[in-house]
Structure formats: structure tokens, C-alpha cells
Design a protein around this nucleic acid. Structure first.
Length: 436
RNA sequence: GGCCCCUUCGUCUAUCGGCUAGGACAUCUGGUUCUCAUCCAGGUAAGAGGAGUUCGACUCUCCUAGGGGCUGCCA
């Protein structure tokens, strides 16, 4: 493979980065890193309304969050407008373009510059992912390249920028396939070499339609806010249309770079499955180094003063069962404050039952007298009470009383972390408040 | 309507003429556990339909059906 390979990610900043779009970035990045080529970033900021500095910042943030580092300086399309128009002049002179008065859809009338399509012949190219593509020139109409206000249109800007950035491979969404036939004609009219193309299928929803904001989180920022790890999103998006050829699914970045091949990217549209992404996220959370997880935990738990051993222990209990970092606050609420919320359903099921009050009172007695306060000792204590018939009748009410929830880390580990004093106080309080 | 593309379990996919069609997620069952969002074991579940080529087609060809994309002075 050549080290001259140059690819680009060329989004138009709108303040949000769509997952389909970022997947294109991922594939470009991987292709560049795999082949030792350059991954360029071009900001197609010609829509002045939407391409605000803030929107561009959002784009950079998403890229950085996912670890998509780019080579060379960011290329801004607006800075190349002069060049675009020079090239249009060139096309006008060579007879590949002409001016004409037209009325647009919204009723504007004015003179636009049109690119003149060849009238016969077949335009063809070998798409790296879709294979051989061909279309009769006569099936494509002449198209506008300069608006009546004198501003260049996407088709010409895109092609000129690709020439100027010396892009060798254009990897982009499937929705650009038709444009490619047009763009190839522009490259040829300019005597420029035509880059190689690879068109990526779309990410679709359960109905098979392009995945949009109505289908759930469609933008990178939303996944970040919901506590997804960038590595998990990256890995999941990569697998939507590519696989390493064996059964591996959770891959390190190094493995991805080593194994990624554009030729093996799928042609068919892939349905987005939030459940598998969630699973993938859990896998990556398990892989977080202990010390880092403790840091996350502390950051999300709020201000609580405990010693390191206490945090270590809680982290060990929590990490394997955490699927989303955003679940942490609810999971640790009972450790953070004595004013933790009670889940009404759990309370109904486990506390508002006859006999529970007496049971809790009895436990308060026994816990007060317990010689040791640690998980194994407490478990032994309750096991003895249950006489081998299952600890459920004791465990469930205790759990809801001290944590307000029906699920969480192991109960006895939880009691150990809470300490004797809090445990007893909470059992007493719950007995008065809820139990019958 | 016209043009281009696609079609293996519910979903993501393996298979590149030999298949008892494999894996993962989801789902179900059983086990472990106090619970579960952990862990272990197992199960259900697929080649759109029809012709042809071939000793043999999920794999190659054609047709049909279904799906998607494009058809802008958007990108």
C-alpha cells in the first residue's frame, strides 16, 4: 500500500454530529491509519447560518472524544471560495459550463452557472465497497454549480477542495452515489485524476429508514451525555458494516487499525441496535482500570468523605454490574445521603407486608449485638435466621429499607459499606414509616 | 415515473461451489446468587420467491417480489 493515501472527513457543521456521519469518519480514520495514509478534516462551512464557531467546536469535540485525530491543518471550505470560482471560469472557458437564467423551486429567478454533462457514453467507476458502478451520461442532467448570488455550490466546491487537498480516496455515505457520477465528470473536465471511491451504507432504524432523531439518540453528543464510553460507541459503529473476519467483536484500537479493510465493508444497510450498544458499553466499563473507575465513581457520587479502602470496595462491587456510567448516581444514592429516594414498587412489595415490622425490629436487635460488622459475618447471621430455607424473607426487606431499591450490589457488602449505625437507624425508620 | 443499489436467525454478521448453515446481541430454559444490571450451561430462531448452470448451490446467471438511495440555485 502506498503512503500517499489521503482521505478526508468533510462534514458541514450544524451543531450536532450524526452517528451515520461519524461512522464515515471512523471508517476514513481507520483506513488512513491502516494504510499509513493521512486523515484530513475539511469543514464544509458554506452554510453560514448553521456553521457557527460553536457548531464547529462541537464537531471538534466529538472527534476528540472518539479519538479521531486528524493530520495537517483543518481545511475550511469558505476559505477556498475564490479558487472554486476560478475553476468555474476555467470550465466556462473550456466549454464544460454555461450560464443560464433559471427559476428555482422557491421562485427566485436569476442567472446560474450549469455544469454541462457529456451527452453520451457511460460513466463508470469501481467502488471499493459497492463494486462496479455504471450509469449512462444521458441519464444525468446538467446541474448548477454557481448560484445566482454568485456563490459556489457543493458539487464544484467539493471537487475543487478534493483536488486541492490531494485526496486519493473518498469514503462517504451512500447518499452521495449519484453525485459521484457527476463529480467524476468534473474531475475529468478539469483534467484532474479521479480519486477512488467507497460508499458506505446507511444506518437505518427498525423500519429500515435512515436513522434519525425520532428513532432515539441520533447524535454523538447524546451518547456522551448518557454515559456511553467513546470506545464502546466507536467499536459498535465499526461493527455495523464491518467485521474482522473471525468471531471477535470487542477489539482494541490497535486491533481495529491492524485488521480494518475497506474492501470488507458491507454494502447493505445496517439496523441500529441500541441493546447491543448497551451490552458493548458494559463490556468496556468492565475494562476500565480500577483506579479510573474509582475516579468516575467519586465524580458521580458527589461530596462524600470516606477512606480509600471504602471507595475501592464499593468500586469492586459496582463495576461489574454497571452498564452506564450515568447509572452510578442512583446506584450509590443510599451511600451518599440519608435522604435517599424510595422506589414505591419495591416498598410495596417488600416492606408494606404484614410481619415485616416485627422482622425489622428483630433485626435491629440482632444487628446491635453482632460482634463483627462485615459482609461474611452478617451473611452468616442472616443465614442462621433462615435455617437453610433461603434468606429471601430477610434480605429483601433489609435491602429496600437501607437503600430504597430492589436491586444493587450484594446486600451484605452494602451493609458493610453503610456501617452498623446507619443500617440500624434505617431499619428502625423503615419499620415505622412503611412496614405493617 | 426514471436511474442506481441491496436481500442469511428479531438484529449485527460468518460462509467466498461441499452446510449437520457458525458466532454475537436480544429472547427463552436451567444452575449460581439475597436481588440484579454479574457469572456458567443449554434451547428456539435464517439463506425473499422462481427458473437456469453444475455431480453438487446460501454461494454463479437471469427473472419476479420487497426494501433503500438519488432525481434542488441542500450538503
Amino acid at each position: 500500500m502506498s503512503e500517499n493515501i489521503r482521505v478526508r472527513f468533510a462534514p458541514s457543521p450544524t451543531g450536532k454530529v450524526h452517528i451515520g456521519n461519524i461512522r464515515a469518519a471512523i471508517y476514513n480514520w481507520l483506513f488512513a491509519r491502516h494504510t499509513g495514509g493521512k486523515f484530513l478534516l475539511r469543514v464544509e462551512d458554506t452554510d453560514l447560518e448553521r456553521s457557527t464557531p460553536e457548531a464547529i467546536e462541537v464537531l471538534f469535540d466529538c472527534m476528540k472524544w472518539l479519538g479521531l485525530d486528524w493530520d495537517e491543518e483543518v481545511f475550511y471550505q469558505t476559505k477556498n471560495v475564490k479558487r472554486h470560482l476560478e475553476v468555474v471560469d476555467q470550465l466556462l472557458k473550456s466549454g464544460h459550463a454555461y450560464k443560464v437564467e433559471r427559476t428555482s423551486r422557491d421562485g427566485k429567478t436569476g442567472v446560474v452557472t450549469m455544469f454541462k454533462m457529456p451527452k453520451e457514453g457511460v460513466i463508470e467507476f469501481d467502488d471499493i465497497v459497492k463494486g462496479h458502478m455504471a450509469k449512462k451520461a444521458e441519464d444525468i442532467q446538467d446541474f448548477a454549480i454557481v448560484r445566482s448570488d454568485g456563490s459556489p455550490i457543493f458539487h464544484i466546491a467539493n471537487v475543487v477542495d478534493d483536488i486541492d487537498q490531494r485526496v486519493t480516496h473518498i469514503i462517504r455515505g451512500d447518499d452521495h452515489v449519484e453525485n459521484t457520477f457527476k463529480h467524476i465528470c468534473i474531475f475529468r473536465a478539469l483534467g484532474a485524476s479521479v480519486p477512488k471511491y467507497g460508499h458506505l451504507s446507511m444506518i437505518v432504524n427498525q423500519q429500515g429508514k435512515p436513522y434519525s432523531k425520532r428513532d432515539g439518540a441520533a447524535f454523538v453528543g447524546e451518547y456522551r451525555e448518557q454515559g456511553y464510553l467513546p470506545e464502546a460507541l466507536f467499536n459498535y459503529l465499526l461493527l455495523l458494516g464491518w467485521n474482522p473476519g473471525d468471531d471477535r467483536e470487542v477489539l482494541t484500537r490497535e486491533e481495529m487499525v491492524k485488521l480494518f479493510e475497506l474492501e470488507k465493508v458491507h454494502v447493505t444497510a445496517a439496523m441500529f441496535d441500541p441493546k447491543k450498544l448497551a451490552w458493548m458499553n458494559g463490556e468496556y466499563i468492565k475494562k476500565i482500570p480500577h483506579a479510573d473507575f474509582v475516579k468516575e465513581l467519586k465524580a458521580r457520587a458527589g461530596a462524600v468523605q470516606r477512606d480509600e479502602a471504602w471507595w475501592d470496595y464499593l468500586a469492586d462491587q459496582l463495576q461489574p454490574r454497571t452498564k452506564f456510567l450515568n447509572d452510578i448516581p442512583a446506584a450509590v444514592a443510599c451511600f451518599v445521603s440519608d435522604d435517599y429516594p424510595f422506589d414505591e414498587k419495591a416498598v410495596d412489595k417488600r416492606l408494606r407486608k404484614p410481619g415485616v415490622k416485627a422482622l425489622l425490629k428483630d433485626l435491629v436487635e440482632r444487628f446491635s449485638k453482632a460482634p463483627e460488622w462485615n459482609a461474611p459475618a452478617l451473611e452468616a447471621l442472616v443465614k442462621e435466621l433462615s435455617q437453610g430455607n433461603g434468606m429471601g424473607p430477610w434480605v429483601h426487606p433489609i435491602r429496600v429499607a437501607v437503600s430504597g431499591r430492589g436491586e444493587g450490589i450484594g446486600l451484605f457488602e452494602m451493609l458493610q459499606l453503610l456501617g452498623r449505625e446507619k443500617t440500624i437507624a434505617r431499619l428502625e425508620s423503615a419499620a415505622e414509616r412503611f412496614a405493617g
